[in-house]
Write a protein that binds this DNA or RNA. Sequence first.
DNA 1: CATGAATGAGTGTTCATTCAT
DNA 2: TATGAATGAACACTCATTCAT
Lengths: 212, 212, 212, 212
Amino acid sequence: MAVSMEYNDKQLAIMDTAEKLFAQNGFSGTSVRDIAQEAGVNVAMISYYFGSKEKLMEILFEQKSNKLTLMVETLIQDEGLSYLQKVYTLIDDYVERFVSQQAFHKIMIREQVTENGTVLAKHILALKKRNLSSIKKLISGGQKNGEFKKNIDIVMMMATLVGTISQVITSQCYYREVSNLETMDDADFKKHIQKKLNIHLKHLFKAVLTNE
Amino acid sequence: MAVSMEYNDKQLAIMDTAEKLFAQNGFSGTSVRDIAQEAGVNVAMISYYFGSKEKLMEILFEQKSNKLTLMVETLIQDEGLSYLQKVYTLIDDYVERFVSQQAFHKIMIREQVTENGTVLAKHILALKKRNLSSIKKLISGGQKNGEFKKNIDIVMMMATLVGTISQVITSQCYYREVSNLETMDDADFKKHIQKKLNIHLKHLFKAVLTNE
Amino acid sequence: MAVSMEYNDKQLAIMDTAEKLFAQNGFSGTSVRDIAQEAGVNVAMISYYFGSKEKLMEILFEQKSNKLTLMVETLIQDEGLSYLQKVYTLIDDYVERFVSQQAFHKIMIREQVTENGTVLAKHILALKKRNLSSIKKLISGGQKNGEFKKNIDIVMMMATLVGTISQVITSQCYYREVSNLETMDDADFKKHIQKKLNIHLKHLFKAVLTNE
Amino acid sequence: MAVSMEYNDKQLAIMDTAEKLFAQNGFSGTSVRDIAQEAGVNVAMISYYFGSKEKLMEILFEQKSNKLTLMVETLIQDEGLSYLQKVYTLIDDYVERFVSQQAFHKIMIREQVTENGTVLAKHILALKKRNLSSIKKLISGGQKNGEFKKNIDIVMMMATLVGTISQVITSQCYYREVSNLETMDDADFKKHIQKKLNIHLKHLFKAVLTNE
DNA sequence: CATGAATGAGTGTTCATTCAT
DNA sequence: TATGAATGAACACTCATTCAT
């Protein structure tokens, strides 16, 4: 939060626009001129403020990824919740975060598809490893406690968590159509899929993690 | 199959190369020069044979998507398998297909992220709807039969199926690292994640679909 | 000569124009757009044919420098000339070459001023060393022969030869004014300074090299 | 001298840095940002203090050229020296000046190559004409006196003086290599070439100007 | 039928300069 | 007086495509 205070209005306008356009059209598919025009700033400002188009992307990522890490770690340390409740909260948070910050998460999906090379891919890798180690602690806590089963493939469960949400996010048109919700307004539809995802994933995790 | 007979060696070389490069670097991230060079043909050939870079992409998609539809429909009609076995076979096929044709599926993931607009996105949408309706039949067969529970969110289960596989495919580096398999050769690693995905997803589907 | 046959009309137009503009305005002072416009070709052609602005410069240099080396070496081996006559011929050739290919030699002067770094500077250095070693043979031939004095600083004499010509070439306006030849047409003026340089340098070299 | 009192520390820092960078990388090859950064001042200062990058260059030139003119004129009027001694002193001064103020003289060389157009070229022309007329007086003094021969091409001799020094200055790398002095430190090497130039040029001038 | 040559639009970036403060 | 912010023009270069042959 304090970090984002560093950025002035123009910088924030660039960052917001860039996030949106990168998500929509990809990194190479978005020109700095596109960003500048939509953000209402001069083309040169992007290089001026962020050094390069690529640096802008990196800054965008770092800003967001730190928040996610913080969230996960805070959750782990929260006393007064059962381990299943913690997992449920984790699901809630992940779903909420993906749904409300779709643009950013689409960028992440995109960049992971792009064969390794990119600087961003490395950052994403680091982020995932950080989060995995936190979540491992959470699950093994529940196992010691007796709440959770012994043989749980945490890595695959996380793939299912993130993969399912990503799938729904990236195929929203499809979900609108198959649910006959083409006319529902955007905000309501977000709430709808968020709820659906929550129910589905909690059901899934309960079935896999617990003994009944 | 008959369709692909139309294409000569050069055209096939272009298509193979394009599939690989689009998967690796995205559509905008791949230039026709890159494709031409790696395929060992003249730059002008791409426009000449396929009309444009975009048309080439479309042709690539149509070729593959038809095969998937065929596979799913064949499976449904297969007698002599229990419904759970059919679901298991479906999982096997999906996993096998995604793992062995990563390049193509990465293109699909990418294109879905790209906000609607593209022609390809519409094709993908149609494909998914076709497959969904086949799978709905399969599941409801199992429900009438008594093998499967009543309340099953098929749409979400498919999101989990496809999402989980996509997630693992696009994050292979990550899975290598967290499984300490950095040194394993590529073919073996493919088998490894294929097996892991199969076990995980079957476990998941069994827990959700069946009564015990 | 056979080498230059490789280049087509457009390439030659680009090379000629580039040579002129680089000489007039320097490398950084000349834009590829300037070259393209004056050569009557599309901007993209420069990259297309020569890879980059820098490569174009290098090609320009290599073409010319080989000819100079050849000339010097041929001269050395020429039998039937006294050593002083060889030196005189060398002067004639250097003067003729500098005067008739002013554009190129201006580029060389420029590039030598530019602190080392450049690729061209290295090529120029190599060229000078090649020529020096040939000329050393020539002078020591005359010394053994008795035509020339013993103590001759060849390196400095070459600096005087090249430096004097360079100086006159780069300050033609000045020489026109101080000789009251402002109205003389360009071709005649070239002949005039060529003659002047020849007389002056031969006089100088004779005085320094020979005993009377 | 009084003139330079006008300039404050920042202005002087800019001027020094500009002189160095213009010499190293040429006028177009040096950006105001480069100058500002290396001089430790704000980018806007250059336009603010000097009007423009071009004006800065002009000011740089005027400052130095006045000193050279003064030097030459003072020398002419010096009584108590033979004419040959005066020529020797002139050589000493020219060499000393070129060697110790290489940056500035490299700028001059560069600008003379640049076809006329520039404002600076005109200033340089004026400077050379001023100096020539002074030196003509010196030589004709020696001729009347009987110290010097009658037929002397003063213009060409000046070309040799300036050209030889320029040549050595701009090709220092080359002279280091051919003299096997690659390891000598910079200050020592300056002294070395200064001495070499002095001996060579005095020898040359004596041979040409005097009767034995 | 196939292709080397060519093109104009577009890329990200840097430029010297101006301006509000 | 001094400067960080901002700008439009220009930079070298690459793009997908077209066209004459």
